[in-house]
């Protein structure tokens, strides 16, 4: 029994130049307590995928098709009131822009209080103090306004908000991208600790493969709106199957020759026009004639991984 099941998720944005297919046919299962990392470059659809999980896509975007099953309810088709009850209580968000994610005119305590009030949950200062303590913050933070906190403290408050109702799934959308390296590590440690404590499954979105490797059980690699590879951390680093994954890992700076950064030449394709073949083919060093004409389907590999590549 999985905590969350995503089936054939497609998200589209209507634009003046046509429909942008930001997420195409993404499927994955999340086991209870599992930590899944979603990586990919800017525009690969990882944040859009993450926000879809709470049905937070705003017009002109919409979930065009697919299912997001949590507790037997399809979040993609849930009524507004059902959705409201599930958000935070069953599936919670740790937002990307911690700097700006808290209401500047309310104290942090008030932002916990309205969360409890909205779900009819028992609140109170003792409960808030306990939540703040679980993310390493003092009780006085409840009386402070967001502008009185540092970036790392704000992100801790956001994590405390996310775990307040002990949800089954936490979606963390690049929670560390606005923070410096030291604080990044602390925040991820905090997230890990509270996740273990309440036993929630986590979807962590990011672009730092190194950070992901330390946090996640499994890593999903996204490219041009598609999930191109999904495998356990150990397997994906030892034997990356998709050429894009391999190039991503190779581009990580190591302790080797200084000043030599390996990138991936070229740019991702436009999401406006659908290529007939694999969307990575134009940049792929291993692309054959078949790759440009036929879309590779997802194949299940031995060891539980899956990959979308003709050559893998």
């Amino acid at each position: 029994m999985s905590a969350l099941a995503v089936r054939g998720l497609c998200v589209e944005f209507a634009s003046a130049r046509g429909i942008v297919r930001a997420v195409q046919n993404v499927s994955f299962d999340l086991a209870p307590g599992e930590r899944l990392g979603l990586v990919g470059e800017s525009g690969s659809g990882k944040t859009t995928t993450a926000l879809s999980l709470l049905s937070l896509i705003r017009p002109p975007g919409r979930i065009a098709s697919g299912e997001i099953l949590l507790d037997g309810v399809d979040i993609a088709r849930a009524t507004p009131s059902a959705l409201r009850r599930m958000r935070a209580a069953r599936i919670a968000l740790v937002p990307q822009g911690a700097m700006n994610a808290l209401n500047p005119v309310l104290t942090c305590g008030a932002q916990f209080a309205d969360l409890f009030a909205a779900h009819g949950a028992p609140g109170g200062t003792a409960r808030i103090a306990k939540l703040l303590a679980s993310v390493g913050l003092g009780v006085e933070v409840a009386t402070l306004y967001p502008h009185q906190l540092s970036g790392g403290m704000k992100q801790r408050v956001c994590i405390a908000l996310a775990i307040a109702l002990r949800p089954a799934v936490i979606v963390a959308d690049e929670p560390t991208s606005a923070l410096d390296v030291i604080v990044q590590k602390q925040i991820l440690k905090t997230l890990l600790a509270v996740q273990r404590d309440i036993g929630a499954a986590v979807v962590l979105v990011g672009h730092d493969m190194g950070l992901m490797a330390q946090f996640a059980h499994r890593i999903g690699v996204m490219y041009a709106g598609r999930l191109v590879e999904l495998a356990f951390v150990r397997d994906i680093f030892a034997t990356p199957r998709h050429p894009y994954t391999r190039m991503l890992i190779d581009s990580l700076p190591g302790f080797g020759a200084r000043g030599v950064f390996k990138g991936i030449p070229g740019l991702p394709p436009s999401l406006l026009t659908a290529l007939p073949g694999c969307s990575f083919a134009p940049r792929c060093p291993r692309a054959g004639p078949r790759c440009t004409v036929e879309m590779p389907q997802t194949r299940i590999l031995e060891g539980g991984g899956e990959v979308r590549c003709h050559d893998a």
Binding site: L51, L54, L56, P80, L83, R84, R85, M86, R87, A88, A89, A92, L93, P95, Q96, G97, M99, N100, A101, L102, N103, P104, V105, L106, D114, L115, A118, H119, C158, L161
Partner: peptide, 25 residues
């Protein structure tokens, strides 16, 4: 703003988001 999205993610009522998060700011 991000805080409107987080307010939605918190499952707050439309009214509360509109008044205390939107109009208030």
């Amino acid at each position: 703003e991000d805080y409107i999205m987080l307010a939605e993610a918190k499952g707050l009522s439309e009214r509360r988001i509109f008044l205390a998060y939107g109009v208030r700011n």
